[in-house]
Design a protein around this nucleic acid. Structure first.
Lengths: 158, 158
DNA sequence: TAAGATTAGTTATGCGCATAATGTTATGCG
DNA sequence: CGCATAACATTATGCGCATAACTAATCTTA
């Protein structure tokens, strides 16, 4: 593997992370949201109420992070927590009406951000991009079982 | 702009950021490096000694971050700081011999990481990726003058 | 059913990067 | 020249996300 290429790729990913996150933060700030919280709201909007362990899985961040995110969103009244029926350890998280309203605004910003991000790219490139990035993510993902080299794993899921 | 696409794209970028960073951290940890420090070493290796303001620009992070990074790399003996000739405010940062040696190891890991990252991608897609990501980065970059919508700005660079 | 292992969630702590405020040196202009 | 302004660096502080250590509840199984 050519180092010049490797460096270009890793650096590009690093810079995109920094800038995309910074831009997202700037867009979300008027709504009183910090980066990461929008992902939780959008996930609840997509999937409906769920317990924190599921959120952790869906958001790709660790349980302690989810604890803090939900705590803050609860404090700001966008999310509600209730004891999970049938499991006294777990608590289900769901959007409040205010949270649902805010999520709609987030969706608008999210479209803006995506549009801004892929500006100047050929349409087919832009269309393929999410899928490509998901492949990359899967390739370096150490949380899940570890997919081998971008090919799907045989169905040995316990 | 379609929300489903926007969501897929923004989410993909967010997850790639988290996972790629985590994987890099895991690879760098045996070298005693934390994420971000490798970028500084590689930049010094590429460009040679430079002052922190230049590092800040090259690395895409703010001066206070550079202060901390250099301080830690100085403490671990990989980098040296000297007063800048002709400017008592600035200090030039350069690699020590140990730093240079470590950087060579980082380069190896960087190749591993890139290889792992693009596994399973068509060769031409992988080849085009760094350029595409740099376009995205430029599109959402608010540090520099603000390029408009992915097209180059007219040469009004002061 | 009682004991060990697993799972949900939390608290404590640490790192990277950001912004704000400060001190110091350079510079450009009346 | 002298003064205002800009640039380099730093300190203080805050947020997101991570890991480690812990409690409490649930599952497994002998």
């Amino acid at each position: 593997m050519d180092f010049a290429y490797a460096d270009a790729l890793n650096q590009a990913i690093r810079l995109l992370s920094l800038r995309h996150r910074a831009r997202a933060a700037a867009l979300l700030e008027p709504l009183g949201l910090h980066t990461g919280q929008e992902a939780l709201l959008l996930e609840l909007d997509r999937t409906g109420p769920m317990i924190q362990a599921q959120l952790s899985e869906a958001l790709g961040c660790e349980p302690p992070s989810v604890t803090l995110m939900t705590r803050k969103l609860e404090a700001s009244g966008h999310v509600r927590r209730a004891p999970a029926p049938g499991d006294k350890r777990a608590s289900v998280v769901e959007l409040t009406d205010r949270g649902r309203a805010l999520t709609q605004q987030v969706k608008g910003l999210w479209c803006e951000l995506a549009e801004e991000t892929v500006a100047g790219l050929p349409a087919d490139t832009a269309a393929a991009l999410p899928g490509i990035l998901m492949i990359l993510t899967g390739n370096v993902d150490t949380r899940r079982p570890r997919r081998r080299q971008g090919q799907t794993i045989d169905r040995g899921e316990l």
